[in-house]
């Protein structure tokens, strides 16, 4: 490794590795730079401009978009809606999935059938999922209200619409979390449970003293990816909430707002500023989670 400094001449083996190494990574790197790295800078740049109506011209406005955003109640309401959505979707989908995964992680009849059913929403088109839930929630003709003989405006009452949307989110993502938890559970050695059983520990005690600590790295991974996923929620609001729905302002997510400004209102500059806010929030939440994990994630 004497020539790591790059000054000594490379041996032919090193030259060979250099050549092939770059050939292997070049397609990915070119694509990555063109499709992802350049766009990051382009979005930051765009956020300093006001896009004219009908796509006419870019006017440099400096930090004006950000200044407007800070005072824009709609942006903060959307951010708050997104956080509220995450506060329901993430803990519920993780806790329910955890319990169901523990139940499924044992020899029993119908195990693969249950697993297949729980996973089903994951491969359904989100547009179809949203449409059928909208139909279930329909206040006049929907299954929910007519089955239970109630008259709840599930998705047009601003007070509860955000919960109704989050319920669809939990329903959609449950199978995904279950699959990841089962994979994690299978790595826990069986001896631990046998030892616990000999000691007379109950199933519940084994869950809290063995399963939870040993599964904590998987739980942490799922938590991080789910929080990031929930912060980027778009499909459900777009499909379930009509533009005229009175509950829309109290349910629209930050990405939905970004989409509206960028592609429907033709203001890509303001859209870019909104998406920078999303980036900042995601980075802050991820840092907090990474610091917090030291308190509860248990690595072997």
């Amino acid at each position: 490794m004497a020539n790591k400094s790059g000054k000594a001449p490379m041996t032919s083996w090193e030259k060979n590795q250099f050549k092939w190494g770059w050939i292997f990574i070049l397609p990915t790197m070119i694509g990555l730079i063109a499709l992802n790295i350049y766009p990051i800078f382009a979005t930051v740049y765009q956020s300093f401009f006001k896009t004219g109506d009908f796509g006419r011209g870019n006017i440099f406005v400096g930090l004006e978009n950000y200044a407007t955003m800070v005072k824009d109640a709609e942006v903060w309401q959307s951010l708050w809606n997104t956080i509220k959505y995450a506060i329901i979707e993430v803990p519920f989908s993780i806790c329910i999935a955890l319990v169901l995964a523990v139940f499924l992680n044992r020899k029993m009849k119908g195990r693969s059938v249950y697993r297949a059913i729980f996973f089903l929403p994951m491969i359904a088109a989100p547009a179809a999922v949203a449409m059928v839930w909208r139909w279930l929630y329909n206040s006049q003709f929907g299954l929910l209200n007519n089955l239970f003989g109630i008259h709840v405006e599930w998705i047009s009452n601003p007070k509860i619409a955000w919960i109704s949307v989050a319920v669809i989110g939990v329903w959609s993502i449950l199978g995904y979390n279950i699959v990841l938890f089962i994979a994690g559970l299978q790595d826990i050695p069986h001896d631990y449970y046998e030892a616990a059983e000999i000691d007379g520990a109950s199933g519940v005690a084994a869950f809290f003293n063995i399963t939870l600590p040993l599964l904590s790295p998987t739980i942490f991974f799922v938590l991080i990816t789910r929080v990031i996923g929930a912060m980027q929620m778009f499909d459900l609001v777009y499909m379930v909430m009509d533009r005229t729905n009175p509950a829309l302002p109290k349910t629209q997510s930050i990405v939905y707002l970004f989409y509206q400004y960028s592609f429907n209102f033709g203001n890509k500059g303001y859209g870019s500023a909104i998406v920078m806010l999303l980036l900042a929030v995601i980075l802050i939440v991820t840092v907090i989670q990474n610091v917090g994990q030291k308190k509860w994630v248990f690595y072997n």
Binding site: N36, A42, T43, Q232, V255, S272, V275
Partner: peptide, 19 residues
């Protein structure tokens, strides 16, 4: 750069990709 890309929410790429 690969790891960096994975941390960024994909909506950031959207407008420039569309352009």
């Amino acid at each position: 750069l690969i790891l960096f890309q994975m941390m960024i929410p994909s909506q950031i790429f959207l407008i420039p990709q569309y352009v």
